[in-house]
Simulated scan of single mutants.
Amino acid sequence: MPSSISPLSQPEPENNCADCLYMTLTGIPVQPVEHPDYLEFLQPFPMPQIDLYLTLKFSQQWESLPQGRIQFGLKGGALRLRVEGGEIPYESRIMGSLELVVPTVETDSPANLPIRDRISGELDESTLDLQGNGATEQPSLNGKPNHYSICHITTKVTEENPAWIFEEERGQPVLNGWLNQVKLGTLNVSALPCRLDATFEVSRRDICLTHVDRLWSPDISRNKRAVLDRLIIQQLLERKFKPYLSRVELHYDG
């Protein structure tokens, strides 16, 4: 049986603006291929492998200010992994265009999923039935079809500390919807203990104000509005988002 990380040994995930971005990362040990007994002595000791499954929920969040409030979302961002004692081969990583599911009812959101689908940073054999094929399509719980937006994902060429760049592909103002347990890649463990630190980071250009309530006159000029938007993002939102928006750690000790 594959070894696993005890759920008790995993730090709690950090989601600093959970209404804007909710992230978890789950690791599942890969079952080694069994060989006939007479060939076992010819086979090298198999290198442990862990499949990584990502859950991301993009939405819009309200922030109260002394004289009003604002709503903001993300146009994109970067998921960065820092790995000790292992590597994630480039060819195993997810990339391309994926559908973000927009929930049709409250119970579709990750916070209301069954506990099995909300595991954060655990390697547990009980999660082996989660979407191992990396499919992104989720059924609607009320029988009605879900609506989708498209997210484009690219990956940077580095095996030790890989990164994935998320961008809205259809020209929408912000990313909206979620990916549930999509296979991110496969971690090849080369030394113990193995540590993985995943952070979702955003820059100023990734943040978009989608609604402003009672902060200025509705007939304000477009240029003044753009300046004020930039000031709010720089002075308020960047302080909330630095050094990262979300963080998950995985520990594997064999």
Rank of each mutant, 00 (worst) to 15 (best):
Y90M: 13
L81W: 03
S64G: 10
G85T: 10
L52F: 00
I115D: 13
S120C: 07
G86I: 12
D129F: 15
L141Y: 06
Y90Q: 14
S109M: 13
I115L: 15
T104S: 15
V83W: 03
G77W: 02
E91W: 06
P110C: 08
S140V: 07
Q60Y: 00
P66A: 09
Q61E: 13
R80Q: 09
L81G: 01
L81N: 02
V102N: 12
G77M: 03
T107D: 10
Q60W: 01
E122L: 04
L79W: 01
P103F: 03
I115E: 13
L54W: 02
L98T: 06
E84T: 12
Q61L: 08
L81Y: 01
L74P: 00
L56M: 15
Y90G: 10
G143Y: 02
G85V: 13
R93D: 00
L130W: 04
R82F: 03
Q61K: 08
E87Y: 10
G77T: 05
P110D: 02
R69I: 09
R80K: 14
I88H: 02
T127C: 14
E106T: 14
E84L: 14
N133P: 02
I70S: 00
G96N: 07
G132P: 01
G96L: 04
A111T: 11
I70P: 00
R80T: 08
P110N: 04
L100V: 05
L54N: 02
P89D: 08
A135Q: 14
Q71F: 02
A135F: 04
I88S: 00
Q71M: 15
N142Y: 03
Q71E: 08
E122T: 11
K75L: 09
L113A: 15
D117Y: 06
T55V: 10
Q131M: 15
D117Q: 14
G68F: 00
A111I: 11
F58A: 04
S109C: 09
S109D: 07
G86A: 14
